[in-house]
Design a protein around this nucleic acid. Structure first.
Lengths: 243, 243
DNA sequence: CGGAAATTTGAAATCGCTCAATGATAGTGG
DNA sequence: CCACTATCATTGAGCGATTTCAAATTTCCG
């Protein structure tokens, strides 16, 4: 594991180190979590947002009949739980997928940060729009593609995001999700996930060992997934010069 | 049809009429659209956001093999196309679902509005988070529930939103989507949509006539859909007093 | 080493899809 | 106003992908 990657804040527009320090100061607590540990449950009063220092965190929406959809896998550097700021009670549960460290930031402090720094507010706004695009793509994958395609898209997307965090990452990465969790992420059954993973291995698109996945043929996986490629803006030209 | 509902801007925090005027002034053009007319295509350079004055607009993501997912139905009062602000090229296509009027707002003007009014910026931020929650629920519906459940959830959600726009709306509303479009929204086939709609009629949950839908038994539909109910905040307590 | 959790396998059932044809409806131009 | 055409809705039949259920095997962890 590695420490608090901060470049995620630079995704769209660079923040001053003052602002980064301010965010770090805003935290009231740092949680040390075991795999499967619940950070916050769906329906809880919305009192905090979270910053993932290390480890993976799932955002899970549960239906009233107990079925679970993993709406998002959060990686180190992500600010988590902001969607629920629009709600009185949390939209989903936040659960650690492996050993993780998470900073707890009270909503008041977060709101103050946004109010004090238009730059920070704008970065948050754009980051949220980016999340929306990723959700739309996830939706499209689940709504319109087959099991192998969904798994391909999911793994590729994770891989892309991991590369942003750790430049040196290769075609292979640690994958802490159980097949049941993967199923909950891509809208399938764990049994079918198992068979489809084997099929992808047989087709030499991926390999598995321990808790790792190797994307053997990224090109072919991308072709299979058949999602549009996205190019996110960094410093949009239309950004008001001031701030 | 009716004119530009503005209460959507009041959803979270009330805007001054100055800000509302500013938004109206920001538009460079008003489009008059026929059903099926394309406002903007997926992949287009991102140059505008849009304000739906009347009519319905679909946001559609197309896979590389030509399958279409309707990610969102936009109704009058919605600001549309903001997710693509995080991209160089539009995430999806915007297409009128019926005769519609749409204001065109250059991204620069929109950005300037956000920069000049922290209140407006904050309202946009929260509104976007709300969109994210709705997308997560849509995802959960498609990923984890059956055809009748998905249709129930979709119709209920639309109905809720229509009620926000027009208080006087009853259990019945105009529904301009073709069955093919409904299929693209809920991740099914038009043939299966047809059969499932008939099943829902047989079970006396809905009725259909012309281009209208009646939610005969809202209680039962909600039970069927099995999605969590959401309560969005209006003026969050943690909102910084100033601004 | 022992027990729990996760993976894998098999067989059968089901849901939703595909293909193909028919019927209904609405918009268009004469 | 009617005929014409395109789009949309509906139906049937067969197929295929994914689920369900249940059991066996492997891995993980204390």
């Amino acid at each position: 594991m590695f420490e608090a990657p901060l470049h995620r804040f630079h995704e769209f527009t660079s923040l001053s180190s003052d602002e980064i320090d301010a965010l770090k100061d805003a935290k009231t607590e740092r949680l040390e979590l075991e795999r499967k540990q619940v950070i916050r449950s769906q329906g809880d009063k919305v009192a905090h947002v979270y910053f993932v220092v290390s480890g993976w965190v799932a955002e899970i929406v549960e239906t009233t009949n107990g079925r679970r959809q993993i709406a998002k896998i959060h990686l180190p550097g992500d600010i988590v739980g902001t969607a629920s700021l629009s709600l009185e009670r949390a939209a989903g549960s936040l659960i650690a997928l492996n050993r993780a460290r998470v900073d707890v930031i009270p909503v008041e402090a977060f709101a103050r940060l946004m109010a004090q720094s238009p730059r920070f507010a704008f970065a948050m706004f754009l980051s949220t729009q980016k999340e929306r695009v990723m959700l739309m793509d996830h939706l499209t994958s689940i709504g319109r593609t087959s099991a192998p395609q969904r798994i391909a898209a999911f793994l590729l997307h994770l891989h892309e995001r991991l590369k942003l965090i750790d430049e040196r990452i290769g075609k292979s990465f640690e994958f802490p999700l159980s097949q049941e969790e993967l199923a909950q992420a891509v809208g399938l059954t764990s049994v079918h996930i198992n068979r489809t993973l084997q099929e992808l291995e047989r087709r030499r698109l991926i390999e598995r060992s321990d808790r790792r996945v190797t994307l053997t043929d990224v090109r072919a996986l991308r072709e299979l997934a058949s999602l549009p490629t996205r190019k996110f803006v960094r410093d949009p030209a239309w950004l008001p010069a001031a701030a």
